[in-house]
Write a protein that binds this DNA or RNA. Structure first.
Lengths: 169, 169
DNA sequence: AGGTAGTGCTTGACGCTTCAAGTACCAAGG
DNA sequence: CCTTGGTACTTGAAGCGTCAAGCACTACCT
């Protein structure tokens, strides 16, 4: 059982440092981001939805929204129910195709997103960019961008556009 | 409401690309990592616990384990209950201090961790490092390491040690 | 001793994500 | 028409993480 595959290429020191640091940033940093939204009764991904919809005055098909946000449709559906109940978004059926629904942000939703975005950007800076100089930031964008671009198989609707074109922060 | 604070420093293009890419990697990549463990009835963080304990033949205080893994004690407690029920770890009270508990990995737990670790490393490579050259990997380790080191206030028990000294992958 | 504070860990409730089904609708072929 | 298949979305159950309390034990103070 031990010798089933000795050809495994373990991580070298640099890779291990990168991986463990990523885990640490995610495990510690992301929960901290949530703390900014919790007092308002929302979670980070819901803010992301409001921000994405704020850039789409025509509204957005739910499936397209899910693709943009890298969410499953099920997950999106659960979050949308809450955002609709809160009055932050409206969903209307499409006239042409009875299956599709179009989501639009309401004024209240747009107002909310604009209200909390400064605090959110400040959090992201405090968490990440305050600790990096310009060269490190550029290198981080380069490396993570390369990785993110290769995940692309999750975005079937937009094979040629930039991977994550919208969103304020 | 809009002019409450116009001094907000928004993210520039590079920072936004870094941030959105990080979100994409986490939102898409991490759930994919989980899929390797799910068939075995475990989640990634539980594998991490087994890996961490596998390096500590003397056993480890639960609070120290929690600090090493960047987990809350509550979260650790919930995961440990499951790992104990599965027979992968044992927890014994400490003789000197009746409050502390010492966790040790069992033979079954060690065997399990060794059995799945090749697949896990392969996942991490497929997700991250296969898309990066040596320079990008080094830059990623440098940038994320800088960020992770600054989160340190979460590790009160080890102010001078390396931030994440152990763990196989 | 006895009381008070503090540490180490556990528990229960609640919200979120996932997975597997399920509903509603469109589109082709008989 | 009406079935078959596929698309867009929703629902319910199960598991995980978080928060706020709670329990057990230790340490200090008088």
């Amino acid at each position: 059982m031990d010798g089933m595959n000795d050809e495994t290429r373990w991580l070298d020191d640099t890779e291990r440092r990168a991986w463990l640091s990523l885990l640490a940033v995610v495990l510690v940093g992301f929960p901290e981001l949530e703390r900014t939204f919790r007092p308002h009764g929302l979670v980070h991904v819901e803010y992301g939805l409001l921000a994405a919809l704020s850039n789409e005055d025509e509204g957005l098909r739910l499936s397209e929204l899910a693709a943009q946000m890298n969410m499953s449709q099920s997950r999106l559906s659960h979050r949308m129910r809450k955002l609709v109940d809160l009055g932050y978004v409206e969903v209307t059926g499409d006239a042409c195709d009875g299956r599709v629904s179009i989501a639009r942000v309401t004024d209240a939703g747009r107002r909310f997103a604009e209200q909390v975005s400064p605090a959110h950007v400040a959090d992201v800076r405090r968490l990440i960019f305050d600790h990096l100089d310009a060269a490190q930031t550029a290198a981080l964008a380069d490396a993570l961008g390369a990785v993110a671009d290769r995940l692309g198989s999750t975005c079937p609707g937009a094979p040629k556009g930039p991977p994550v074109p919208k969103a304020r922060a």
